[in-house]
Amino acid sequence: MDGEPRERLWRAIAAAAEVPGRRESWAQAVCLACVDTLEQVDAAILALRGSARSEEVLGASDQWAAKLAELQYTVGEGPGVEAFEGGSPVLVPDLSVEQVRWPGFADAALALGVAAVFAFPFQFGAIKFGTLELVRRRPGGLASAEQRDAALAADLATAALLRQSLEAERAGQDFAPRPVASYQDVNIATGMLAAQLQVTLDDAFARLRAHAFSQDRSVLDVARDVLERLIALDELAE
């Protein structure tokens, strides 16, 4: 990629620090710019990550991308999870050969129409806090130039997010970018389940996740059923 397409991508990322009141619009713009300027990329996801239980999707180029992000959150594995945990890009040009690597993720993602995923971590020194993920509907890798551009896009997005956080701190405000997909309901349901069953938060979350996987549902949907008392907490005791 060179010339005007690359400049459009960089401008969308650089705009983060200039529009502090519209951070969610910026994240969406980054995802849409990646789809628009990187050849053969059909969708993009920008996610903040902290742990298995802590994640928010700041940007998703479309609902298909948002479903893929929710799938990884539900099963707890996939390219984005691995890129975040390992701190290195995870490039998967053909997901159909990765069933052993991610048994819970690969089949479900393929059923969604995902054929290839390329995940790049947000990292500053030893601090890891998210990923930029590019998705394809057909198998195939990124050209070397596009890999470099995507990695640099992730680095620029990292710098922009850090700048936003610093500016919020200087203004005496909390840094709270508005997500397009929040899993706050999962956190609440996890706390309720942990208190009811007298287990740790991690154990409670694992039970929500296992129930969701067994029912072929997202953990967010299961959590909302718990909050609405459609699922009794005792049902998740085993």
Rank of each mutant, 00 (worst) to 15 (best):
L48K: 06
D36H: 12
A232Y: 08
P139M: 14
W64L: 04
L58V: 15
R22A: 15
E70A: 12
T131Y: 01
G141K: 09
A153I: 10
Q198H: 04
D62F: 03
A160L: 05
E133I: 00
R53W: 05
S88H: 13
P20T: 12
D221Q: 07
W26S: 03
A65G: 12
E55I: 07
E85H: 07
V199Y: 01
L201N: 11
V117M: 07
T190V: 12
Q99H: 12
A176F: 01
A176P: 00
A153H: 08
W10I: 12
F118R: 00
A60M: 14
A154D: 07
G172H: 08
C34R: 06
G113F: 02
Q147C: 13
V75K: 02
G21H: 15
R170A: 05
A154P: 10
V92P: 02
E55D: 00
R148E: 12
A66R: 15
C34I: 06
T190F: 02
L95N: 07
L201I: 02
T200Q: 09
L48G: 05
R209S: 11
V41H: 01
R178V: 10
L227A: 02
S25P: 00
A151C: 08
W26Q: 03
G140C: 14
R22L: 10
V92Q: 04
S88P: 00
A116M: 10
W64N: 02
S51G: 12
A145E: 15
G130N: 06
V30A: 01
N187F: 06
A150R: 12
V75Y: 02
V222R: 05
R209Q: 09
G50N: 10
P93E: 13
